[in-house]
């Protein structure tokens, strides 16, 4: 698992995660276990760590967020070079991951590290719930049969 930190000022901080399903695709209602590692904290003191399993929308609308699992845990020992933890939860029946055109639904494991300086670092690891194929914009409706004269009446 590789990751690229977007933080230029703290290039060494890095959070990796491993899911119990290699393809990161889960059925709704299935159990999920994910393990994460936080490395490169350095000398800065950690105030707390939040880990959550969330879904959010993406696309052309404002981002809506749903939190399925949330936990705030105590800061690690200052001597720990690498902090690791495990998240275990049972996923709900919905929403399914969806690759729509203007609305997308994504599931993710988020690990957020709060430092005593007030700054925070969040890492997002996307996985899928369900296996829906991507949506495609529909072509304009077409008539499925040429119009035929129909005389009024109940045809049931």
């Amino acid at each position: 698992m590789t990751s690229e930190s977007l933080d230029r000022s703290r290039p060494t901080l890095r959070i990796d995660a491993q899911f119990d399903r290699l393809d990161r695709t889960y059925a709704p209602g299935a159990p999920l276990t994910a393990r994460y590692w936080i490395a490169g904290i350095g000398q800065e003191r950690v105030r707390s760590i939040e880990r959550s399993v969330d879904w959010y929308t993406e696309g052309k609308g404002e981002e809506d967020l749903g939190v399925h699992f949330f936990e705030r845990i105590a800061p690690p020992s200052p001597t720990d070079a690498v902090v690791e933890g495990t998240v275990t939860t049972t996923l709900p029946a919905s929403p399914l991951s969806y690759e729509g055109v203007i609305v997308k639904v994504r599931w993710c494991l988020r690990v957020r590290v709060f430092f005593t300086s007030g700054r925070d670092f969040v890492s997002e690891h996307v996985f899928a719930v369900g296996d829906l194929p991507p949506a495609r914009p529909a072509a304009p409706a077409t008539r499925i049969a040429p119009p035929v004269p129909v005389v009024r009446g109940a045809s049931t």
């Binding site: 729509g100 055109v101 914009p137 529909a138 008539r143 040429p146 004269p149 009024r152 009446g153 109940a154």
Partner: peptide, 23 residues
């Protein structure tokens, strides 16, 4: 944006009678 549009049934030149609805 409509991403699925499946025609179910279509009718043409339908003569409607006010005394009995088309079903």
């Amino acid at each position: 944006l409509v991403v699925i549009q499946r025609p179910v049934r279509a009718w043409g030149l339908l003569q409607l009678d006010p005394t009995s609805r088309f079903e």
